[in-house]
């Protein structure tokens, strides 16, 4: 791949997906795009990039964007955000929404579904507190291919062993040959949609809780700012945004602020200021 091809690809991915392909990630290009070359019968990466330059085939363009975006995920990944959801964010949302008995959660980079299904399992465990509630989990990802996989809820033996307690494997999954499928009742709790974070969020409605972990790290600062500001618009008053451990809102938007007590949790800046003033007033 020539320097010009790499620069073209970098600009192309930035425009289509927001992905900031740094020079250090150059090594990923060949390994990720080799299957796309095979699938569309391009002899070389150069030919594939040449086709993108002409830009007449939407299927190839989508395949390239999907191949280059990261889909690494597993059940209860990093554990702490899920403990935070179960012990802090969910109880607070239940208290806040007690009158209207409705809860909306958005997993903004759902990949193959492990994160939204982890939340669905935690909600199932909290079912007595949510009796009579309408609970929506909206799970989106830029890749239609991973969304299709997520809808099936079918996982390999390796996938179900990464992060999932074995007791919950037995409780919520059915063994189908070498694979494991998550229960239909949990699949029904999650609405999967293909969605690009660079597009407007208005059509999705507002959410009490937004999970967007380990995604912003791939964007440059202006794109991060833009997305975080739009998250602020999509978050209902008092709602919580959970980001990955290496991500923050600081220096990127003044609409959101760290929760102060719980690392990785963010809320509307005005809510945080009010809470701080109340605490100072004793």
């Amino acid at each position: 791949m020539t320097e010009l091809d790499f620069e073209f690809l970098r600009a192309y991915l930035k425009q289509r997906s927001g992905l900031a392909l740094t020079t250090e990630k150059r090594y990923l290009v060949e390994s990720r795009l080799a299957p796309v070359c095979r699938r569309f019968s391009f002899a070389t990466l150069r030919d594939l990039i040449g086709s993108l330059r002409i830009g007449h085939d939407g299927a190839i363009e989508r395949a390239v964007v999907e191949a280059m975006t990261t889909n690494e995920t597993f059940f209860f990944r990093d554990r702490i955000p899920f403990d935070l959801f179960r012990d802090v964010v969910l109880p607070e949302a239940i208290a806040r929404n007690a009158a209207r008995r409705r809860l909306r959660i958005w997993c903004a980079a759902a990949s193959t579904g492990q994160e939204p299904y982890s939340l669905a399992m935690l909600l199932q465990e909290a079912a007595p507190r949510l009796a009579g509630w309408q609970v929506d989990i909206v799970a989106t990802d830029i890749s239609s291919e991973v969304i299709e996989r997520a809808r099936l809820g079918l996982y390999s033996q390796f996938e179900v062993q990464r992060g999932l307690p074995v007791q919950w494997l037995l409780k919520y999954f059915t063994q189908i040959g070498e694979q494991w499928q998550i229960a239909a009742s949990l699949r029904a709790m999650v609405e999967f949609r293909q969605f690009n974070l660079l597009h407007g969020f208005e059509g999705l409605g507002t959410f009490d809780i937004i999970f967007c972990r380990n995604v912003l790290i791939y964007f440059d600062a202006p794109t991060k700012s833009e997305i975080l500001t739009r998250f602020a618009n999509s978050l209902s008053p008092g709602g919580g945004l959970l980001l990955g451990a290496a991500e923050t809102v600081i220096g990127l938007t003044d609409r959101l602020a760290p929760d102060g007590k719980h690392r990785g949790l963010y809320g509307h800046a005005e809510t945080a200021r009010t809470a701080a003033l109340r605490a100072a007033a004793g």
Binding site: F74, F158, Q161, R162, P165
Partner: peptide
């Protein structure tokens, strides 16, 4: 990954 995850669990 699986072994370390299970030990943490």
């Amino acid at each position: 990954d699986i072994l370390t995850a299970k030990l943490e669990q």
